[in-house]
Each structure stands twice: as C-alpha cells, then as structure tokens.
C-alpha cells in the first residue's frame, strides 16, 4: 500500500528571488508524481538543480508548493491546517545533507535530540531524558557524549545526531537528503548500514535523495530520475539500472566511474536535442516508466 503519494507537484520560484535571468518564473519542480510504498526505500536522483531537494521540502511543506497534492496515508498534507500539519510532522521527518551546518552549534547534543519532544510537548522531563538516551544508543552514539557540543563530534557522529533527532518522534517516513555525501569515504558505509538497520528495526519508509548512483542501486527498491524539474524515468531499481530507457538516464548511468581499472566502458554523451520535453511517461516494463 502507498504510504505517500505525490501528485502533479509544481513549485515555481518567482523573479523576486533575483536568481533567474529575464524575470521568467522557473519551475524548479514541474508536474512531478510518484508514490512510495510502506517500508520502501525510494531513490530520487538527477542532475544538480533538477529539483530533488525542492521536491522533498515541498512534501513536508518546509516550502509551500505552487500546486499539486501530497497524500500521506491518503490525506492531502497541502490542505492541512497549521495544527494538523504540526501533528503530521511527527510522522514525517527529514535529515539534511550537511552534518556540519544543520545542527545548532550552541546546543548540547542532548538538547538537539530532545528538542522535537519539547516542541511537541511529549513526555515528562524524566521520560524525555530516558528517550534521548535510548535514541543515542539506537544510532550507535555513546551516552557518555550526551553533553558534548556538535563541534566535538566527527562528521559521521554528527550525522547520527541528526538521525537521532529525526527519529525522536517515532516517524514512519523519513526523507534523507544526501545523508552521506558530506562524510568521509570510510565513514559513509557505517552510516548507510545504520540507515538500513534502523529501517528494519523501526519499519521506516525512506525517500533517499542521492548523487551516488552505486549506493542508490544498492539500497533503493525503486528509483526516480529527475531532469530539469521533471521525472523522466521511474521504476524498480533492478530494472532501471539494467535497462535505462531515457537518454538522460543512459548518460547518467554510463558516467558512473567504475572502481575497476580493467572495466571497459562505453560512455554515452547526452545530446540535449535527443530529449523530447513533451514526452509523457510510458510503461516499458513492469512498473518501469520512461518519458521517451
């Protein structure tokens, strides 16, 4: 069953932001639809600036979409009142890309993780303290470090704090926006393992936004590829990686550097003229759609 359904999501950024030439409104997200099943890890990949982060932020209404619908357990989040949205946010969380800037540097780790519980007025002081210690253990941090400040942690540990905070309210859906790209090579695998373990333990559903396509192939059940604000291809990871259909997906997959000095590669260079912007998604294999 679908936990989350995104329907015809559109987000325009206006000229007043001054970011765009000619004063035209640019559709950062341009009619995007997909659904995520309970327990799934759904991957969102694509060029820098193609609208992945904007899509994720619109789903939680951290920015207001221009139009469309985001259904969570069947209800349209975009129609929620303020108080209803506040309650819904307990169930939907986001972990940001940068473990360095996303934590308040003046707050002790304990407070950072406790804050969502305080905001949502959950539990007594003692209950909250126990919950924070439990969350620390859950993400593999030592409770001895509860009173440290963010700068006293390594990048991987900071990402764990962000994760503990996101899990404090027992969400069922977590958006992971590039959760490991800022981490050291030897630390990325640790955090990825933790994410997979937590998913099993807590039956979480993930929207996983990432650049590392090898990682996406490894952990995602289904994948959507974004190009200039639109989904150009979507399907089961196995099918999409084995037989990409859209010219952009093909170029993207062929560009992944292969960690094998003997691998022969056939690089496909994207010819923008080969992309038909008006093509609609067509099913080309079971559950696998491409705009070709």
């Amino acid at each position: 069953m679908s936990l989350v359904e995104v329907e015809h999501l559109v987000k325009h950024f206006g000229r007043d932001t001054g970011l765009f030439r000619g004063g035209t409104r640019v559709a950062a997200v341009d009619d995007v639809s997909f659904s995520i099943d309970q327990g799934e890890t759904f991957g969102l990949v694509g060029e820098s600036g193609s609208g992945k982060t904007t899509t994720g932020r619109c789903m939680l209404r951290l920015i207001e979409p221009t139009s469309g619908a985001v259904r969570f357990r069947g209800e349209n989040v975009l129609e929620f009142s303020r108080s209803r949205l506040r309650r819904a946010r307990r169930d939907m969380q986001i972990v940001f890309q940068d473990p360095y800037s996303s934590l308040n540097p003046r707050m002790r780790a304990r407070k950072i993780v406790e804050e969502p519980l305080v905001i949502h007025e959950l539990g007594s002081r003692a209950e909250r303290r126990d919950r924070v210690a439990e969350l620390f253990r859950l993400v593999g941090l030592s409770p001895a470090h509860l009173d440290r400040f963010p700068h006293e942690f390594s990048g991987g540990q900071r990402q764990r704090i962000g994760l503990a905070r996101a899990l404090a309210l027992n969400p069922s859906f977590v958006i992971l926006d590039e959760p490991v790209s800022a981490l050291d090579v030897s630390i990325q695998a640790q955090v990825v393992n933790l994410l997979m373990d937590l998913q099993r333990q807590l039956t979480l559903t993930y929207l996983f936004i990432a650049h590392d396509l090898r990682l996406v192939e490894h952990i995602c059940t289904r994948v959507a590829v974004m190009y200039l604000g639109r989904i150009v291809e979507i399907g089961p990871a196995a099918s999409l990686f084995a037989a990409p259909q859209h010219p952009y997906t093909r170029a993207l997959l062929s560009a992944i550097p292969v960690p094998d000095p003997d691998a022969s590669r056939q690089r496909i260079v994207l010819d923008p003229a080969s992309i038909n912007r008006n093509a609609v998604l067509k099913e080309i294999a079971a559950g696998h759609f491409a705009a070709v």
């Binding site: 030897s186 630390i187 695998a189 990825v192 393992n193 590392d212 192939e217 490894h218 952990i219």
Partner: peptide
C-alpha cells in the same frame, strides 16, 4: 571493500571507528 556492491540491500563492509 566498503564500495557499495554485492547483493542489493546487504550491509556494506564498513571500516569501524573514526578518523
């Protein structure tokens, strides 16, 4: 060893600890 690969969904072979 920690490069993602092998069967999908399998735990990665991480290096323990921090730099």
């Amino acid at each position: 060893a920690s490069i993602p690969g092998g069967a999908p969904g399998q735990r990665l072979k991480a290096i323990d600890g921090a730099v």
